[in-house]
Write a protein that binds this DNA or RNA. Structure first.
Lengths: 248, 248
DNA sequence: CAATATTTTGCAAAATATCGCAAAATATAG
DNA sequence: CTATATTTTGCGATATTTTGCAAAATATTG
């Protein structure tokens, strides 16, 4: 096996898992730990990953405060993302907003899926960086440094240029009457994305169901599909079914 | 067997597997390892694959990531960035393109500087994340996964909405007659940024001075200031001074 | 601070690369 | 067709690089 091949495998392992260990890698590649150690040091010096004690972590331009938010309820979000994935077909054009469940979906997008993703979220764009087929259109605008996404009039105008197949909506708060969130500009953005997509799919962990926040986005009944981590037969989903929303 | 046939087999083997080794190839083709070695060296020089220790890897597999570029000549780039910093005043609005020297400038921007930075580069936006005062406007468009920056018509239209104070131009190639670069879309973008700024400041490591690339951007004389890591009294900067360009 | 795990360092063996050269193959000229 | 030049190929000797091991140094944990 070529050193180059080893390097590629190490990079792939590191970027897909976020990290990799000497122990695992030296077993997988059938070389000594020292060799892996030297490989990782070399890749580090080239800036392709970061060597740490015990192995390596992937370099990411995405700030840590975002990462922290990301890690809450990660398992539920993965379940939600898997369900959402079944809705995506080849050649579709999709809106992805800055929600963390949506980000999870971006991460598990299969490599053979050929889609165009329009987003205002840096983390989403970053997750799709190594995807071979996904075309990414980034929405311009003023950068919000907290959520690491763009907002404002420019972003809204950008959205209005499209009419996409599906909008994957990261839900902040949902009640039987309204969809709402904690930030005015985020509310404006989410409304615009709903208006410029054929179908809106809400991604939502259970704890956000039946809650309301300051900024109204739109009536809940405008939602087409709602995905949570629970089974669709779970009782509190009934009121939503009555509104004509499909539960997944 | 013709040499051409061997070359074709080597290329096919390399591109289908992503890599190929001398050992395998010399067995498969029933020639000595030296012959394969020479073949691969020739194919490398023609840019059809990349020779590495032990064999060859396919060129498509080697993404020219900015992450890799970022680490070369880092010290020179820091010197350049420090000089560029002296040009920036409070309340100014600036264009930053995706050059690595420009990125270095974004990294060292003092915390008390209150500026608006308009960029198409994710790394630049990311570098400014922790800056308390810098407002960041991100230019939308199609995301290029290699350079991790946006390009295309949308991006150009975004640029045309502004007339900024200074454009910090990451130079790819500069001769006394022309500014040029290796990518058509990058050339378009750089031209647009020049046209929509009052002053253009070129950031350029010495090794790029007096070189030319495929895509013409604009006449060199349109540049207002040129910054390199060398002292301005360095002799080869004279021809540029003659064009009315200030050297820093 | 001791016990343990991890990393660094120097080193020798193995693998790989380079160089010069001569034999073989191919091309060119008369 | 023959003689000569040119290119290609394989071989052996000699660098250079890579690899795994063991001891020493360093970091981590309780």
């Amino acid at each position: 096996m070529l050193k180059e091949d080893r390097h590629n495998i190490i990079l792939e392992e590191t970027s897909t898992n976020g990290s990799s260990s000497f122990q695992l890698l030296c077993k997988k590649l059938a070389v000594s730990e020292d060799t892996i150690r030297r490989d990782i040091r070399e890749l580090d010096s080239r800036g392709l990953l970061k060597a740490v004690r015990g192995g390596a972590v992937s370099v990411s331009r995405i700030p840590h405060h975002y990462r922290e938010r990301e890690h809450t309820d990660i398992e539920q979000k993965k379940v939600i993302a898997k369900k959402a994935l079944t809705l995506i077909k080849n050649k579709q054009v999709l809106f992805f907003d800055g929600g963390t469940s949506v980000l999870e979906l971006a991460k598990i997008l299969p490599a053979d899926l050929n889609v165009t993703i329009i987003t205002n979220s840096f983390p989403v764009a970053n997750a799709l960086e190594d995807h071979p087929l996904a075309e990414v259109i980034f929405l311009g605008g003023r950068l919000n440094k907290m959520s690491f996404a763009t907002f404002g009039n420019e972003t809204l105008k950008g959205i209005s240029k499209f009419k996409v197949d599906i909008y994957f909506f990261g839900i902040c708060s949902i009640s039987t009457s309204s969809l709402s969130c904690k930030d005015l500009e985020d509310a404006e953005l989410k409304l615009a994305m709903m208006q410029h997509s054929v179908k809106t799919v809400g991604l939502c962990t259970w704890d956000k169901v039946n809650s309301e926040s300051t900024y109204f986005i739109r009536e809940t009944k405008e939602l087409d599909i709602l995905i949570t981590e629970k089974d669709k037969s779970a009782s509190p989903s009934k009121p939503f079914t009555k509104l004509g929303i499909e539960i997944l």
